[in-house]
Amino acid sequence: MLIWWTGTLLEIIILARGYQQRLTRQFPIFYAYLLFVTLDEFVRISFYRWDPNHYSQVYWVTQYICLALGAGIIFEIYRVALRSYPGAARMTRYMLVVVFAAIVVKTLTMPSGDLFAWLASTSLVLERNLRIVQALAMLTLVSLFVWYAIPFGRNLKGILIGYGLFIAMSILQFALWYYSWDRFKPFWTYAETSSYLVVLGVWVNTLWSSETLHEAKPVNQFESDYQSLVASTREQFRRTLARLGWVVRA
């Protein structure tokens, strides 16, 4: 109970600081998610205590709203981080389409061949699969952020690390559940609670104060000509390859 109250208290602190620092305007979906999660805990406990017959329905409805808001967080990370980088944003959209297409193709080539059957065989499996899709989207996003050296700033980096850790723990839980849930259940309760506290700790630390993201400096006219840039890079690579060829012909 103490751990539960600690978690709730941390959530309230993050929300209060976010409102105070005007971070709620910068990351509206993230704060909506956190507000929903905080209220959701009280709603679930109330149903569990006073109307246990409806607890299961309330749990799944609120869980799917959380999942939808979670997908919104990924979109928000993409929107905020790439606001000043249209080229990187374009590449990210392209890569995300490729990743989602690969998931669909992979699913259709499975023995059952039914995307919806794969997604919704049970509520738990659906949640696990949606979390995997979220993880893949996040992986793509982070890989491209690292590749294009996109500056995040403290706040966005905190949201990204915290939510990434949360998704990773969720998927791990589902994977363990698939193998042998009874064996892991006693340890998992502690692992899950402490990891969620770590996530909240990361958010309290990184979202304590607002940090302005540096706007990208516009590139000069010569550099803004993308075709010239590609031609120049290609030419430099060609020269390097030629140089490597000299080694063989030495």
Partner: peptide, 29 residues
């Protein structure tokens, strides 16, 4: 697939947390 995704995600998040913004700062300036 899930375990692989988690492992890769963990590695990338670790990289991300250790990444300094020096390069980005230089680019911005």
């Amino acid at each position: 697939l899930a375990l692989t995704a988690v492992a890769v995600l963990a590695i990338i998040l670790l990289l991300l947390s250790g990444r300094d913004d020096e390069c980005e700062e230089r680019a911005a300036k």
